[in-house]
Simulated scan of single mutants.
Amino acid sequence: MGTSSRLRTAALRGLVPLGLVSVALAGCSTGSGDPAPTQTVTQTVAPSAAAAATPTSVATTPAPVQTPQPSATPTCGAEDPTSAIQQAADRLGAPAGIDGATWDTASAERDGYDPCAALSWVVLRPAMSTGSSPSAILLFHDGAYLGTATKEQYSFEPDVVRQSDAALTVTYRFPLAGEGNAEASGRAEAAYRWDDGAGRVVMTGDVPPTP
């Protein structure tokens, strides 16, 4: 006797409740020996909070580079003042008090010359000069020749000192009364300043006395 027949018989006899019979029958009525197909469930997984919070890189434009403006520069003359020295010597004529003498342009003292300075100088002396020979101080503005520091040409080599870009002082030597050239102890100091507003050199101070 099969299981279902036994359960029906038992149920009819009152041994098995009819509810259990229905359950048993439902579990056995597959129609074959293969198990029932399993349902496949596809689950969609939401992205995690950490992944959603990952920042996205944003391209940034670099700040513009500020290029400093070039500072103004003065107008400069020739680096080599040889031509200006020669022209000045030609205008001066012969050194004062020395017959037949000429200016030694090749040996002119150029240490004070600055082609970009508001005021600079060159000391010009005669060829074959001595300690008491006259000198001429040539003045320059931005390398351009202006003229001599004094109209007279004084004996003995002057001591010229720069005070600023536009100013200098000159100490002249001369013999006092009763002194010979070797003992010359007299001193006279003059100051020279380039006046930009007036466009010329302003002189103050003293020069040696005229004999």
Rank of each mutant, 00 (worst) to 15 (best):
L25W: 09
A10M: 15
R173E: 10
L119M: 01
Q43G: 09
P55R: 11
G143Q: 00
G97S: 06
P37T: 08
G143L: 02
Y154L: 11
A72Y: 00
G31A: 14
L168E: 00
V123F: 02
A96M: 10
D34Q: 07
A72P: 03
K151S: 13
R6L: 14
T204K: 04
T210P: 04
D142P: 03
D114H: 07
V207W: 06
L176I: 07
A184D: 06
Q43I: 13
V41Y: 13
T148V: 03
G112S: 08
W103L: 07
R110E: 04
T40S: 13
A191W: 13
A184R: 00
D206R: 14
A36F: 07
T73C: 06
A24H: 05
T60W: 05
L176T: 14
A108V: 11
S83E: 09
F140K: 00
A127F: 09
I137T: 02
Y192H: 03
E79W: 07
A188E: 09
R193C: 05
A78Q: 05
L168V: 02
S4D: 12
L18F: 12
E183Y: 11
D99I: 08
S57G: 09
R6H: 13
T73Q: 15
A96H: 11
E179Q: 15
S129E: 03
V160A: 00
P64D: 10
E109V: 08
S5P: 05
A10H: 10
V201L: 09
D99G: 05
E157L: 12
T9G: 11
G93E: 09
G197M: 06
S132K: 10
A10W: 15
F140T: 02
P115S: 14
Y192I: 07
A198I: 10
D196A: 15
G77I: 03
L25N: 08
A94S: 15
C76R: 11
P126S: 12
L92G: 00
D111A: 15
W194N: 03
G97W: 04
S135W: 01
G27W: 06
P17R: 09
A46S: 12
S57D: 06
A89H: 01
G93K: 09
L7M: 10
G14I: 04
Q87D: 14
T44N: 07
D195I: 11
P74H: 03
S32D: 15
P95K: 02
A106I: 03
S185T: 13
L20I: 14
R162D: 01
A84K: 04
D159T: 12
G93D: 06
A53L: 14
R91V: 07
A52Y: 08
D165L: 01
S71I: 04
V161P: 01
